[in-house]
Write a protein that binds this DNA or RNA. Structure first.
Ligand SMILES: NC(=O)c1ccc[n+]([C@@H]2O[C@H](COP(=O)([O-])OP(=O)(O)OC[C@H]3O[C@@H](n4cnc5c(N)ncnc54)[C@H](O)[C@@H]3O)[C@@H](O)[C@H]2O)c1
Ligand SMILES: NC(=O)c1ccc[n+]([C@@H]2O[C@H](COP(=O)([O-])OP(=O)(O)OC[C@H]3O[C@@H](n4cnc5c(N)ncnc54)[C@H](O)[C@@H]3O)[C@@H](O)[C@H]2O)c1
Lengths: 233, 233
DNA sequence: TCGATTTTGTGAACGCCTTCACCAGCTCGT
DNA sequence: ACGAGCTGGTGAAGGCGTTCACAAAATCGA
């Protein structure tokens, strides 16, 4: 499989085969977001410093990232906001909309289905499926009604879905992933805290909220005990 | 500030000052999860290969990570599951429970409040606050009632909160972060798609779900066009 | 026209992290 | 008691990614 390194996690393989460096790809959405905001404020151009400010990335890093797309800035001036926005959009495939199927309409799934932030950033949830027969037909949001998990195959095929969001309970996640892959899905955003096994060519990105808190907790612990040296005996 | 590199994002500073390498810290929660499962199955010991299998990390990487905690394995046998679990728990501060305040009880906030995965992994949401006066007093889950955002100061102080989950609309995020920091919070898990500005010593981890999908979309695009070489002219 | 100023693009250096390769130490069968 | 077979620990090497530093290029005012 091709578990994309969302953290310093797994698969060192960067700079995938003639493509952009992975680290750069992960930041392009941030630049795009910043550019959209800048454009709304009426700015025609922006400097790497401004982008750095808006994204939290260092300005040197911004320039390096953008240079991978080709040289689109003007020395002494900066980048043309609209042009750069279009450039990045094309690079990360935001010129088309990506159809997404959401599996699992529980607490988290319903929140995700209601999230307008996907549509404004290139993804569209075209189906919500759940295994619970009692929930079939329930409307989760305008235009989206819960469908049967048995119809996954058909949904994926007929609606040109290539990306899935997995929000089922942990114990069902691997089975759902297998079925998604069988149906033709080649990218999965997984919220269930398990390492999915998927074949080569299928990308998985993992969001583990509890783990994020644990990482913060580690640093909190270190803040509390500034000097551990004289401990124990 | 100290934006922790959740991705290859920001601040190269790894191996923080005598501590564990950042990349290792990010994986310890995975090992802990795997060990808990292994223990439930009755396994007394496990090999680095088993942990690799369960977490998706390479076995060499597992051994390197665990070696940073000291040598706790036995050659020819593996690691003692219970012992290693305790060891990791101590390393990442899971011997105590961390009190967390959740800010913003909207779609996402309610899902997070209902999530049992925090409690089982060392964090406890001790308060849910929202700015909407109409929602005050509403019970989001057993034992948690929505409180006023005006009481943040008091809540953070009285309940020994050091970690916050930020789930407000984007436009309110920076203001909320400022108030959290002023109240004494030193770690923030931010779901709003903005780069927060916080002072030094405050850690921020960012979860940007839409960006995750955009990253997947980038790779999808590349899958569709295997050879871009003969394009355009 | 020229010089001061701004800001990009980029080679080089540096550091972190992963992987490799292999030795050391443990168990178990004989 | 010993050799075969596992399995962890760990130095070395290599790969990515970030930061540094500066030349190149554009604008602007005088
Ligand atoms: N709730 C959160 O805030 C949160 C946070 C982080 C991670 N997660 C993870 O996200 C996942 C979902 O969490 P949740 O709180 O929404 O759980 P939930 O129990 O509220 O919802 C799960 C939904 O999945 C459906 N489901 C079960 N098996 C299915 C199958 N085989 N196919 C399709 N649908 C199926 C159930 O009917 C249910 O509606 C879990 O793995 C959880 O660990 C949740
Ligand atoms: N819904 C999702 O699945 C999802 C996914 C990814 C990211 N996000 C992000 O998470 C955040 C919350 O999303 P949501 O869908 O829950 O939004 P929402 O509008 O449903 O909920 C936001 C809540 O925050 C409260 N709020 C507003 N200002 C506040 C303040 N100053 N202090 C305290 N509370 C305040 C509101 O009253 C509301 O209850 C947003 O930034 C969104 O971009 C949401």
């Amino acid at each position: 499989m091709t578990l994309l390194p969302r953290s310093p996690r797994l698969t060192g393989a960067s700079t995938t085969d003639r493509g952009l460096p992975n680290a750069t790809v992960a930041r392009l959405p941030l630049y795009l977001r910043a550019l959209t905001q800048l454009r709304a404020t009426g700015s025609a151009t922006c400097s790497s410093d401004q982008l750095a400010e808006a994204t939290g990335v260092s300005s040197a890093n911004v320039r390096k990232d953008l240079s991978h797309l080709g040289s689109h800035g003007t020395r002494g001036v900066g980048y043309d906001v609209a042009h750069l926005q279009a450039e990045i959009a094309q690079a990360i495939g935001q010129t088309q909309e990506w159809n997404v199927v959401l599996v699992g309409a529980g607490h988290l799934g319903k929140a995700l289905a209601a999230y307008p932030g996907f549509a404004s950033r290139g993804s569209r949830i075209v189906a919500v499926v759940d295994a619970d027969p009692k929930r079939l037909g329930e409307q989760v949001v305008d235009g989206l009604v819960i469908e049967s998990a048995d119809d996954l195959d058909e949904i994926v095929r007929d609606r040109a879905v290539s990306i899935a969001i997995l929000a089922t309970p942990t114990h069902a996640a691997q089975d759902v992933a297998d079925r998604l892959v069988a149906a033709g899905v080649t990218s999965i955003l997984n919220f269930a805290p398990v390492a999915l096994r998927v074949p080569d060519g299928v990308d998985v990105r993992q969001v583990d909220v509890a783990a994020e808190l644990q990482i913060l907790a580690y640093h909190e612990q270190r803040k509390s005990s500034p000097r551990e040296e004289a401990v124990s005996g």
